[in-house]
């Protein structure tokens, strides 16, 4: 479990970093979505392999090590919600930037225009 999750998180980070370093900001947006999700997956992997373990509902006479650690899962729920909100906000911001500047190229976007001081 640890190795395959680590591999997946690693691949996701690589892809996300590649996308974030692009000029096209639609790609940057997708880079961020993957980046946040890689972060969430990393956080989830902290609770350990679920194999042979039970859901965290306490029963009499069972050792604590039999259960999956519920805290990272609670954390990741919060993180997913925050990430969703931010992604929606980023999409709306980029939509407005596209409407205003008629470009999706960050290099063109930040070139000084006529009348800039």
């Amino acid at each position: 479990m640890a190795y395959d999750t680590a591999l997946l998180v690693g691949v996701m980070f690589t892809v996300a970093t590649y996308l974030i370093l692009q000029k096209n900001f639609i790609r940057i947006l997708f880079g961020f979505i993957i980046f946040t999700n890689a972060g969430n997956l990393f956080l989830l992997s902290i609770s350990g392999a679920p194999r042979h373990r039970r859901m965290p509902i306490l029963e009499e006479g069972r050792p604590v090590s039999d259960y999956v650690d519920p805290l990272p899962q609670a954390l990741v729920l919060t993180a997913i919600v925050i990430g969703l909100g931010l992604t929606v906000y980023l999409i709306m911001l980029l939509y407005r930037v596209i409407l205003d500047s008629k470009t999706i190229d960050t290099e063109k976007l930040f070139q000084p225009e006529e009348g800039d001081e």
């Binding site: 972060g39 911001l93 976007l109």
Partner: peptide
């Protein structure tokens, strides 16, 4: 004209937040 400046602000801070979460 100014709204585009929010984009670097947002991306840099979102990046930092993701690292903070991890």
């Amino acid at each position: 004209r100014h709204i585009k400046e929010a984009f670097p602000y947002l991306t840099v801070n979102m990046f930092a937040s993701s690292i903070f979460l991890m």
